Amino acid sequence: MIDPVVLESRNTRARAWFDALRDRIVAAFEQLEVDAPADLFPGEPVKFELKPWVREAGGGGVMGFLRGGRFIEKMGCHISLVHGTFTPEMAANMPGADKDPRFTATGISLIAHMRSPKVPAVHMNTRFLATQTGWFGGGADLTPTLDEQRSQDAPDAITFHAALKAACDKHDPAWYPDFKVRCDEYFYLPHRKEPRGIGGIFYDHHNSGDWERDFRFT
C-alpha cells in the first residue's frame, strides 16, 4: 500500500512533468507550422487551442487541439489528472483495487496527422495510475499512409524503432524487445490480417519496484 503522502507527491510530480511535456510538444509542432516551406505548404501558421475540462466524477485536465494548419492537418495533445472509484467489474482486474477501489490517474495523449501523405500519423500516450499500488503505462506507434512505408524495414520505421530502443536501453535492455512485441500484438487487425502501422512500443502495469526508475523511463 502506498502512503497517501507519498502518493500525493508522486501524482504532483507526474502531472507537472506531463504538463511540461505537453508544453514542449505544443511548442515544437507550432514551430513546424512556422518553418514549413511556403511553396509546399501555403497559408498562415496555426496555433494550438487549449481548453480546460472538468470530470464530473473527479479531476479534469486540458485538451489541446490544432486544426487546419498548413503543415499539420489535425492534432490533439491532452493532459489529465483524474480520481474516482472503479466499478466492481473494473476493480477486479486492477492491481490493488480489490481491497480499495479508489484510484488516481494522470497522463498525456497525443495523435498527429500531417498534411503530407509522406509523413506517418503518430500516436503516443503515457500515464501513471495508482490504487493501493501504482504503475506506469503507455507507448507510441506510427501509421504510414503510403504502402511503401508500411513495413518495419522502411527507413522511417528503422529510425523510429532505433530511437525507442535507445530510450529503453538506457534503463533495461530487456524492455524494448518485450514492449515491441506487445505493441505488434496489440495493434494487429485480425479482420484485415495486418498490423495497423509499423509498430512501436506498448507497456502497461509497469512497476519494476523502483518508482524513480520507472518515472525516469516514462
Rank of each mutant, 00 (worst) to 15 (best):
Gln149Val: 08
Leu146Trp: 05
Pro101Met: 15
Val122Phe: 11
Tyr176Val: 00
Thr106Leu: 04
Gly68Thr: 08
Arg192Gly: 01
Gly138Cys: 04
Asp19Thr: 15
Lys47Gln: 12
Arg22Met: 07
Ile108Val: 15
Pro117Val: 13
Glu194Gln: 12
Pro45Cys: 05
Val34Lys: 04
Asp39Cys: 13
His123Ile: 08
Gly107Ile: 07
Met90Leu: 15
Arg13Pro: 11
Glu212Ser: 10
Ala167Val: 02
Ala36Asp: 02
Leu110Glu: 10
Arg10Cys: 00
Phe29Trp: 15
Gly138Thr: 07
Leu142Phe: 09
Gln152Arg: 14
Ile25Val: 12
Arg182His: 09
Thr85Trp: 10
Ile111Asp: 14
Pro101Glu: 10
Pro177Ala: 00
Ile2Tyr: 03
Pro190Trp: 11
Gln132Ile: 01
Pro144Glu: 04
Ile79Arg: 11
Thr106Ser: 06
Asp204Thr: 12
Thr159Leu: 09
Pro4Trp: 03
Gly60Asp: 04
Asp178Leu: 02
Phe136Lys: 13
Val119Thr: 14
Ile198Thr: 00
Pro37Asp: 10
Gly59Phe: 02
Gly96Glu: 04
His161Gln: 07
Leu21Pro: 04
Trp53Phe: 12
His205Ser: 06
Ala16Thr: 08
Gly139Tyr: 09
Ala112Ser: 15
Asp147Asn: 15
Ile201Thr: 03
Gly134Asp: 08
Gly84His: 10
Val5Phe: 10
Gly59Tyr: 01
Ala140Tyr: 07
Ala38Glu: 13
Met114Gln: 08
Gly68His: 13
Ala20Lys: 06
Leu142Pro: 12
Arg15Thr: 10
Tyr188Gln: 00
Pro117Asn: 13
Pro173Asp: 00
Asp210Cys: 02
Phe202Thr: 08
Val122Thr: 15
Pro117Phe: 12
Gly43Ile: 13
Tyr176Asn: 02
Met1Pro: 07
Gly59Thr: 09
Thr218Val: 05
Gly76Arg: 04
Thr131Gly: 09
Thr143Leu: 14
Thr12Lys: 06
Ile25Thr: 02
His206Lys: 02
